[in-house]
Design a protein around this nucleic acid. Structure first.
Lengths: 218, 218
DNA sequence: CAAAAAACAGGTACTAATACCTAACAATCC
DNA sequence: GGATTGTTAGGTATTAGTACCTGTTTTTTG
């Protein structure tokens, strides 16, 4: 007898992408694409019903995003391993997703071969990152020494993300302090830490950084 | 006799997306998907060979981007009408694409229905924009297009636009002064006038203003 | 429970930005 | 020719942001 079939579901808000993804498994006897969802909530329901071994999820989705969705999947349905799909080869997204419990990270321009490799690797309980992402990780590692510690160092906390949003929204430090009932110094400190993590020399750079990294929408 | 078949080609660097796009026409007798390309140069060659009536192209592609590609398509192969595909509902991309000669603009999360509507509209020599893009256009119109006086009041001079770009790019006043061989006070003055025109209380607001008004690209 | 991380807050010093002025000079337009 | 506009530059004052510290308290997590 052969190996048991691996069941796959996909969460992505792009209908065309879902259609294309589905077709990857047409000629794969050991793998069955069993369901799809256009957003996080729907994805959770699909998983509860179909009990797939592998879940692919986009990071950017309307409603609950991929990071939050992944956290819930790992918590509620630990049998399902998550592989992240992203348009962006971005260290922050990568970090957020790994932190949420994803076992793999693929860019949306991944080839069929990479998708299949990722499935088998993650199903065998190893991690998988696509080529571009591995290069990104190497780049970060060589840029400043020690491995994944670096990625963790630049991950933003919830409060930091909140303050990034307010800064980008045009609020001054004082405005933010008043709004959040904090001392100006506290907000100063948060901003200081944010700027270091983003390697931004000034507010203008921080704003473009935040927009490029999906932390603020224009 | 029926209508002649419409031939479609697609330029997009995402294999999975191309696969999904292809399947949209499986049950469409009047439309034939005849070719695909992963970048701009390849797309031009495919068009030269297959002479499609409709070309879909992604905006962001490695090598020659969609805007430049579209310009060349319209110049060399005027029989081919171009419909832009984009992940981003961005006024700036939209303007660039229309300027380059695209007759339609679709987001990548478009439904099958929208894709088919776009094809028929553009093939009938009308323009087509997906719902989200139409909303974006209305929003921009009401946001900045009310009174002519208003527009003139906030119209930026060439130098001002140049400095806006440099500020958004993360340069400090001093950086800009050195780069342009000006006194810091001159740049201060320019920035002052810019901020008043934009009604921006601080740099963060100016950056988002500039991005929203197409004065800076992220 | 103990360790780690996040959030909070203050010190100190310096630099950059903001606000509101004036004004010279050149180019452009009617 | 005269008016307008753009570019340049400076004066003066205040506020905001930047950089690098030190801590405490609270929350999360192993």
């Amino acid at each position: 007898m052969g190996k048991p079939t691996i069941h796959i579901v996909l969460g992505d808000d792009h209908e065309i992408f879902r259609n294309g993804f589905k077709t990857l498994f047409d000629d794969q006897p050991g793998i069955r694409f069993v369901g799809e969802a256009a957003n996080g909530d729907e994805l959770l329901r699909v998983i509860a019903k179909l009990k797939p071994e592998i879940v692919f999820t986009d990071i950017k989705m309307p409603g609950m995003n991929g990071v939050e969705t992944t956290r819930l999947i790992r918590k509620r349905y630990p049998f399902a391993e998550v592989i992240a799909l992203s348009t962006f080869n971005d260290a922050h997204f990568l970090m957020d997703m790994l932190d949420a419990g994803a076992k793999g990270y693929l860019l949306k321009d991944a080839s069929k071969r990479e998708v299949l490799e990722a499935i088998h690797a993650v199903h065998a309980q190893t991690h998988y990152y696509c080529k571009a992402t591995r290069e990104k990780m190497t780049e970060l590692r060589t840029a400043s020494g020690d491995s994944l510690a670096e990625l963790k160092r630049i991950a933003f906390s919830g409060r930091e993300k909140e303050i990034i949003g307010l800064i980008c929204g045009g609020m001054s430090t004082m405005d933010i302090a008043k709004k959040l009932f904090l001392s100006k110094r506290t907000v100063d400190g948060h901003r200081d830490r944010i700027m270091r993590k983003a390697s931004a020399p000034n507010i203008a750079s921080l704003v473009t950084f935040a927009i490029r990294h999906g932390l603020f929408e224009v």
